[in-house]
Design a protein around this nucleic acid. Structure first.
Lengths: 216, 216
DNA sequence: TCAAAAAATTAACACTGTTAATATTTTTAA
DNA sequence: TTAAAAATATTAACAGTGTTAATTTTTTGA
């Protein structure tokens, strides 16, 4: 019915309003500090109203997590045009790193925190991690094409994808958790942490290049 | 003076008692859940007493962080006997992974959380990250020896060390944040996450082997 | 023994997520 | 149009958090 649709639409609008307020506070002062009460105050409703639209705080965390993946997928979508698979793989890595550096809060929510993940488990109907799935499958597809060009010989697709994701994620998460800064200061006398990250990534790419079988 | 020593010794004893209680709760139910009040109740003192021995909760977090590094260093110390540097490098990786899987809470505190790191910054006299430094330098030393045997040619020491740390850390942190589980279920139809981690590590080692210049 | 110093406590502040009970507003049907 | 029903929002409260100021208890040294 028409009125039914209108109702659910309005409900969706309120959900969006709440999420926007949550996002604003989240980006400005981090997840922990974006409390239910602050979100409510931001849009001028009582704290309990939030619970009429979101099950709990981790539900909001998951919604933001999804927004983050939407953004990352947008960034990745322009890389489909890169024809050479190894060039595309490098571009995926660079884009991923740029995303982490420009949106550290989102990165934390998407790849470092347990909370939005817990929400997925508790969800009825086993709602799957569609967003993450798509991103990972794009990586796997690209690596598969690289293999056909002679890269990563003798290694299976999933391990290679997992391993390359882990490498770049490792660098990004060490950056965000400030561990990279500390190692830079204490061990490497290098304060420019972004450069450190960049260089380590290049070293990794160099290793990958050496896996190429040139007879193919 | 003797009485002075006794006094500071007793003070240290109480600090240790508090830390042990904190560690117990921390290992049993995680950092967030190990509240000041619970720690105090555990040893039968009032919550405010804790603040006479530790500046704040992040101070306790840092003390536990140090305990974790002590344990990791103990595990690493037995690897000095491994003569072949590449074998030693592999052993370091395996030991690191085993540590992460067996002590996920400590791993989180040591390598994933910002809180203990913040404490280092706020510390007067710029107390340096000695524990982490030692571990990283052991890695660098080993990689340096690998280079002399023809591995990692054309890559500088610090980038290679950083990159290999990031790879293994990436795998461990994705395991702990449950992201690896989700990718295993959704994309790879592989529920055995530890096996997934293991295999990805082996793939990485295989890549490293291919960097060897056999003419040396 | 008694004053000074040290150590521990109680009470309180300002928060947090979350729920039950209540009130208000909107929608539906007579 | 108006009364009942449904949806929506609110207040009050619970049980917890880290942390500090003021106060009391205990220990120490002369």
């Amino acid at each position: 019915m028409k009125s039914e649709d209108k109702k659910t639409k309005r409900k969706e609008d309120v959900k969006k309003t709440i999420l926007d307020a949550a996002k604003k506070l989240f980006v400005e002062e981090g997840y922990q500090s974006a409390s239910i009460r602050k979100i409510a105050a931001e849009i001028g409703v009582s704290p309990t109203t939030i619970y009429l639209y979101y099950k709990d705080k981790s539900d909001i965390a998951y919604a933001l997590h999804q927004e983050g993946f939407l953004l990352l997928k947008t960034l990745f979508s322009s890389l489909i045009s890169v024809e050479d698979p190894f060039e595309r793989l490098k571009a995926i890595g660079r884009t991923y790193i740029r995303f982490a550096l420009e949106h550290p809060d989102f990165y934390e929510l998407m790849f470092m925190m347990k909370e939005p993940m817990d929400h997925l488990d508790s969800e009825s109907e086993e709602e799957c991690w569609e967003e993450g799935k798509q991103v990972f499958e794009f990586l796997m597809y690209t690596i598969g094409e690289c293999q056909q060009k002679g890269y990563f010989e003798g290694s299976d697709l999933s391990s290679t994808a997992l391993q390359s994701w882990a490498t770049v994620h490792g660098l990004c998460s060490l950056f965000i958790s400030t561990h990279l800064q500390k190692v830079g200061e204490e061990c490497l006398s290098q304060e420019d942490t972004e450069l450190l990250l960049e260089t380590a990534f290049k070293t990794y790419v160099h290793f990958l290049e050496q896996t190429k079988n040139n007879h193919k």
